[in-house]
Nucleic acid binder design. Structure first.
Length: 115
DNA sequence: AGAATGACGCTGA
DNA sequence: TTCAGCGCCATTC
């Protein structure tokens, strides 16, 4: 039934459940949506997502806890760093987040499955 | 329909 | 432990 929803739609659903002050990885999200291995597509979906979106896309980083810096984003990656700091996450000068402490744990969160 | 792209991840050296 | 290479898989051309 989740399959009826488009890929990016599911990405939005998962990302929207990331608690404030915590972060998740692309692979983690892909796994949660039942598509382990499609971590790249998660980033692909977030890419077409508008900055003004309600989805906290800034809480998504790669497995190394590092913000993906890409030219086509034209600085939105640096904005992501600022937004994370706003939430109290100590982002390193090289845009690295201490996943060890701030990584989102779905099992600990209230997994309000509505789909 | 087939090939290329890419906000990633894992394995091997 | 760190670095480079290959693989995944949905979307786009």
């Amino acid at each position: 039934m989740n399959q009826i929803l488009s890929f990016d739609k599911r990405v939005c659903e998962i990302v929207s459940r990331i608690p404030f002050g915590q972060v998740a990885t692309y692979g983690q999200i892909a796994e949660l949506m039942g598509s382990y291995g499609s971590a790249r597509q998660v980033g692909w979906s977030l890419r077409r997502l508008p900055i003004s979106s309600e989805v906290p896309w800034h809480r998504v980083v790669n497995a190394k806890g590092h913000i993906s810096m890409n030219p086509n984003r034209e600085g939105s990656d640096w904005m992501q760093r600022e937004m994370l700091i706003e939430e109290g996450i100590p982002v390193d000068a090289s845009c690295t987040v201490p996943l060890k402490e701030y990584r989102w744990r779905p099992v600990d969160s209230n997994w309000l499955i509505d789909n």
